[in-house]
Each structure stands twice: as structure tokens, then as C-alpha cells.
Amino acid sequence: MEVRTIKVFTTVDNINLHTQVVDMSMTYGQQFGPTYLDGADVTKIKPHNSHEGKTFYVLPNDDTLRVEAFEYYHTTDPSFLGRYMSALNHTKKWKYPQVNGLTSIKWADNNCYLATALLTLQQIELKFNPPALQDAYYRARAGEAANFCALILAYCNKTVGELGDVRETMSYLFQHANLDSCKRVLNVVCKTCGQQQTTLKGVEAVMYMGTLSYEQFKKGVQIPCTCGKQATKYLVQQESPFVMMSAPPAQYELKHGTFTCASEYTGNYQCGHYKHITSKETLYCIDGALLTKSSEYKGPITDVFYKENSYTTTIK
């Protein structure tokens, strides 16, 4: 009895394709271990004539594949690729409408935090270190965002349907971005203890939790000093293409032309909904596939993004 075979390709990165001759009487799992086709788990399936010449994702289970996976995804987590594939199996079914010149995501599976993050990423200057993220990001900007969303979920250790947080998501993504040249110098002034300067680099240099107003941050924000008295913390120097200011959701007025974009969060910790506000020729609110415009805006804002380049204080 002759062994019926077909020729397929296996890959971990969709760049390096490895030619395989597979036995049609055995499952993919018996031949390769966990195997995925377009995100779908085909591990328990036997090869079919229609699979001839198709590319299958496999887990990096030998040295060659491990090197290829690390170079593309910059992670050695053995569960990463499987999590990416199972997320992709959902995100490829989502709709990605162009809204006001940006790629958004039609609401499904509690994905409003991903839509808000995706919209924000198209408006701030950011370059990702893992080629996987950078490639998928370019495709997302062009309207094909399924891979990018699935990668975000995998890097953030999230599953489809789980509630997510924009600030946490951005923080994970910033860790995989090139923020080497970003720098922030802060000064804390206390009447009792004097003053202390701190220099922050990388992710810490672009994120701040405690106030939404970048102007206020430049002037000074009140913080408790270690001595128990009130101290003032203010920005001395900022070198970065953008800054992200966050605070627990509270009524906040966004003035046209003073910011790049913002995240609105309605609801409580267990259950809520994100919308995205962007400042173009007027203010726009993007909620999944829905767009509304207004000249002014007041609502429960939790993150505001500002364009920056270089700032030095005039406070002496």
C-alpha cells in the first residue's frame, strides 16, 4: 500500500517557510505537534488534498525554529505562539472599519479597549522592536488589523473576551517599542525636605499616572512627601515624541487643539466601556464603527496623549 502524501510549508514567522512532505494517514499533531492554519487549530486533523502548498504555523520545537521565533517575536515564552494563534482565530472574524481616516474595530468580545489602543497607536510616533509587531502594525494602518490585535493580546497575556485596560495595554506595548531616546527629568520640591531631581528613561519617561493635564504637570502637581507634608512635583525636561497622561476616570474637559487623542471610560472596574476622542479640525468621538463630532467635550476621561518633541522648564 502506497503512502499518500502532500507537500506543505511549516513556519513560526510566515517569513521562513520549511518544506514538509506530510503523510495523509496521520494527523498534523502526530507529525508536527500543535499546528495552526489561519489561526485555526488543526492539530487533530489529517492532511487533505486542499492543504497542498498551504502554510501551517507550528510551535518552535527545534533550534532553527526557536531562533526564527525569537528573532521575529522577541520572546522565548513557549506558550506565546499558541496564544497568538488562538487569538487570531477570533480577531480574523472582527470587522476593521476605516473611521475618520483611522483603522478602528467594530465592537465584539469586549474589544473596546483594543480599538482605543489601536486608534491611539496610529496617532503617536512609535516604532516597535519585534519585527512581528512592526509588520502587523503597518498592515493594521492599511486596514488589516487582525494579526496586530492578536499579537497585542498575546504580548499582554490576554484572551479574547476578557476586559482590558488601555493604560495597561499601552504599557505592555511600550515595553516592546523603541523608547531608548526618551528621557524625563522631574523635580520634587518640599518646604521641609528641599528639592530632589529624578531622571527617568524609556517607558517611565512617557507615562504618568495622577493627572490628565500635561500643562498642569509642567506647572506642578501636589504629591505627598515622605515627611508627610505636601510637596510639588513638576516637569523639568521632556525628550520624547509623545507623552501619555493618565488618571482614574473623572469628568474632564478636553479643549480642541490642546491634545492629540484621549480615552474615555464609562462604567466601573468590573464592567465598563471605552471610547476614543481625537482632536482634528474639530473633536471626534470614535466608538467602534461609530463616529460623532463636537466642538467641545466633557466626560469621564482616563488617558490623554500629547505630541511632544523637546521641553525644558522655565521655572527657576
Rank of each mutant, 00 (worst) to 15 (best):
Y297M: 04
K158Q: 05
A140V: 10
E125R: 06
Y72T: 09
Y137W: 15
C271V: 14
L114C: 00
C271I: 14
G39C: 08
N129C: 08
A136H: 10
M26H: 15
F80M: 02
Q123N: 03
T278C: 15
G202F: 01
A289R: 07
T260C: 14
E162W: 01
V8M: 10
L37P: 01
D38A: 13
K233R: 13
Q222I: 13
Y265Q: 14
E52D: 14
L59K: 14
L151R: 01
F305Y: 09
V304C: 06
G288L: 01
F174R: 01
Y96C: 00
N100K: 11
S240P: 06
K219M: 08
Q30A: 12
P34A: 02
C227N: 03
S50C: 08
M209W: 10
T278P: 06
Y28E: 06
V243I: 08
L118R: 00
A115T: 07
R167V: 02
A132N: 00
T258Y: 07
D77K: 04
N129R: 13
Y72I: 04
T5F: 15
K7T: 12
K255E: 15
L173V: 09
G164N: 12
Y214V: 07
C112A: 14
S25V: 10
G53K: 13
T120M: 15
E162K: 04
C156N: 03
T226G: 14
N61T: 13
A177E: 02
N49K: 09
G288V: 01
A177S: 13
G82I: 12
D13I: 00
D63Q: 02
V22M: 11
I301H: 15
C190T: 04
V236K: 07
K316Y: 10
D38T: 08
F174G: 03
T282H: 10
A115Y: 04
T302Q: 10
N147L: 01
E68G: 08
K233E: 13
G164I: 08
D63V: 08
A87G: 00
I286H: 06
V99S: 01
E168K: 06
E71G: 11
Q216I: 04
T314A: 12
L126E: 00
V189G: 03
S263L: 07
K183H: 13
A154D: 02
C190I: 03
M85V: 04
N14L: 07
F259T: 05
T120S: 15
A108L: 01
H273P: 04
R139C: 12
V221L: 08
Q175E: 08
M207Q: 15
Y214C: 04
A289I: 03
L121G: 03
H74R: 15
A177R: 01
V185R: 06
E308M: 12
S171M: 12
F305G: 05
F80S: 01
M26L: 14
E71V: 11
Y138I: 13
Q237R: 12
I277M: 06
V236Q: 07
S181P: 06
L235E: 05
P131C: 01
K307T: 15
Q216S: 10
Y96P: 06
M170F: 09
P241T: 08
F128G: 03
V188E: 08
G82S: 12
F56W: 01
A231K: 08
V42A: 09
Q222C: 12
Q30S: 10
G210F: 04
K233G: 11
H18G: 05
M244A: 03
S171Q: 14
A69K: 03
K106F: 05
Y57C: 07
Y306L: 04
N129A: 08
I301G: 06
K275E: 07
A132H: 02
I223H: 12
D77V: 03
T55H: 15
T260A: 10
K307I: 10
V189H: 09
T76L: 11
T159F: 07
I301E: 04
T5V: 10
E239I: 13
M209C: 11
Y57E: 02
Q195H: 12
K280S: 12
K95C: 11
L133C: 01
N268F: 08
V42W: 14
N147K: 12
K158D: 05
L119D: 06
E308V: 11
H48L: 13
P131I: 01
G33W: 01
A115I: 01
V22N: 00
Y138Q: 14
F56C: 12
P241C: 05
C271D: 15
M244E: 06
D180R: 08
E144D: 12
E296G: 12
Y172C: 07
A146I: 00
Y274M: 04
T75W: 00
D63K: 01
I152P: 01
Y284E: 09
G53E: 11
E68K: 15
D38I: 09
V42K: 08
H273R: 15
V243S: 07
G210V: 06
G39A: 12
Y252D: 08
Y274S: 03
L65D: 07
S213F: 02
T75M: 08
I223A: 14
A108V: 05
P34T: 13
N178G: 06
T313D: 08
F70V: 11
R66Y: 10
H48P: 09
C271W: 11
P241I: 00
T103E: 01
L81V: 13
L151G: 00
P60Y: 05
K298G: 07
Q122I: 01
T192Y: 09
I286E: 08
Y269Q: 15
L153V: 07
E162S: 11
T292K: 11
F56V: 08
Q30E: 09
I277K: 06
C156H: 02
T116F: 04
D77Y: 02
V206N: 05
F305W: 14
S310I: 15
N14I: 06
A205I: 01
C285E: 12
T282G: 11
R139L: 12
W94V: 01
D41C: 09
Q122T: 02
H74S: 12
S240N: 04
A250E: 10
K233L: 11
T120D: 04
E168Q: 11
A262D: 03
S104C: 00
G257S: 09
F148D: 01
S295T: 11
H256K: 15
I277L: 05
S79L: 14
V206R: 04
A205G: 04
G210W: 03
P97Y: 10
L200Y: 09
R141D: 00
D13H: 00
V188I: 10
T19K: 14
D62S: 09
G29A: 08
P130R: 01
K255Y: 08
L235A: 04
M207E: 06
A231F: 02
L163E: 13
L126T: 07
C271P: 11
G194F: 02
K307E: 14
V185S: 05
N16H: 05
S213I: 07
V206P: 04
T55A: 13
A115S: 09
V206C: 09
G29T: 01
N110R: 05
N49M: 15
D165E: 10
N178Y: 10
C149E: 00
Q175I: 00
V185F: 04
P300S: 13
V58S: 05
D109A: 09
L173E: 01
C271G: 13
K7F: 08
G29S: 05
Y252H: 08
G33I: 03
A69M: 15
V3M: 14
R83L: 05
N178A: 13
K298F: 09
Q122M: 04
G202P: 03
P248Q: 14
H276G: 06
M245A: 05
H48V: 10
R139K: 13
T312Q: 13
T64H: 12
L235Q: 03
A177L: 06
C261K: 06
N100I: 04
Q30I: 06
R4E: 13
D62N: 09
L283N: 04
L17H: 14
G202M: 03
N147G: 13
L153G: 03
E52I: 10
E162I: 06
E144L: 08
A205K: 03
L235V: 10
A146S: 13
C193A: 00
L114F: 01
N111F: 05
I301C: 06
K275H: 04
N111W: 00
L119K: 04
L163G: 15
H90M: 11
G82L: 13
N268S: 09
Q230V: 10
G101C: 05
A142L: 13
G194T: 04
T43H: 12
Q197D: 06
W94K: 00
D109P: 05
G288M: 02
Q123F: 03
K201Q: 15
N111K: 01
I277F: 07
Y306H: 03
L173I: 08
K93N: 14
K158Y: 10
D135E: 12
I15L: 14
G220Y: 02
T35G: 02
Y84W: 03
E71W: 04
V203K: 14
G29K: 03
A142R: 13
T10Q: 08
G143P: 00
